[in-house]
């Protein structure tokens, strides 16, 4: 068995909906059926075979070769297996995924890991806005699993996050962890805007500090907490390396405009 591979024939001139190209769906289909799966988003009605050169047969190991920022919804709702993208990907990568492993070598668009329930997403490049966040109108963002972005993240990473862990090695855009309900978000670099706006609970570690905090975050002093050490150890197991080691950090509590039980840790 060799990896089921979707090699992009050329840069697509429309958004491509890859939500059907997941292990769960493809494991029961033959190659001719896979070729006929609709992936286009315009009235042209493009099918997988129009957009991709398809080879291989192991649906538990799916590859996208030659990425594009127009390849949307890769790994959506996948619950098992692995998907690897050797290039960029578009919006909603790994949305509402519940298991399995998803890796993108390049950068991805908005709503990566949106509503993630389980499994693991790794992005080597940057990601767009609302990493792990809810789609329009949804009441919860990520509720489980892990996301790691090696580059920078866009605005409002971890919006309405409820559980799970996000690790961003680079900087993050405005207002990370907005409306956070619970879970853990770690930023290796600098957090722009005012992180944690309207967060109820949850934990934020901002190793490069933040541009500012709203007045409804209150300084709770420097803490040398065992929990930080345990957290660092635990995360190292998941991610390998993490940008903090559990040494003493300054704690901010907020957002007191709402429940106010969120914790933000900054270098002491």
């Amino acid at each position: 068995m060799s990896a089921l591979t979707f090699r992009l024939k050329g840069e697509p001139d429309e958004r491509i909906d890859c939500s059907s190209l997941v292990p769960d769906r493809l494991k029961s289909l033959g190659s001719s059926e896979i070729e006929k799966l609709p992936v286009g988003t315009t009235k042209r009605g493009l099918v997988a075979g129009d957009v991709f050169e398809i080879s291989g047969d192991d649906a538990a190991d799916i590859r996208f070769e030659g990425g594009s920022s127009r390849l949307d919804r890769i790994g959506e709702r996948m619950s098992e297996g692995a998907i690897r993208v050797s290039g960029d990907a578009g919006f909603r990568v790994g949305r509402v995924m519940s298991g399995g492993d998803l890796q993108v070598e390049g950068s991805v668009g908005d709503l990566c890991g949106s509503g993630l329930e389980g499994g693991c997403i790794r992005v080597k490049g940057d990601c767009g806005a609302k990493l792990g966040g809810p789609d329009a109108g949804e009441m919860k963002g990520m509720s489980g699993g892990t996301i790691r972005v090696h580059g920078n993240a866009g605005e409002r990473a971890g919006d309405r996050m409820r559980r799970g862990t996000i690790l961003i090695d680079g900087d993050c855009g405005k207002d990370a962890a907005s409306r956070m309900i619970a879970g853990t978000l770690i930023v290796g670099g600098h957090a722009r805007g005012a992180p944690g706006r309207l967060m109820k609970r949850g934990t934020l570690l901002l190793m490069g500090g933040a541009e500012r905090f709203t007045p409804t975050f209150v300084d709770a002093g420097v803490h040398d907490l065992l929990i930080l050490k345990l957290m660092a150890d635990g995360l190292r197991e998941t991610f390998g390396d993490v940008p903090f080691d559990g040494s003493a950090m300054r704690k901010m509590s907020g957002d007191t405009a709402v429940l106010g039980l969120g914790e933000v840790y900054l270098p002491a």
Partner: peptide
């Protein structure tokens, strides 16, 4: 946000 915290008797 401050008005909300003030209304709720929370610190800011």
């Amino acid at each position: 946000g401050v008005l909300r915290a003030g209304l709720g008797g929370k610190p800011f």
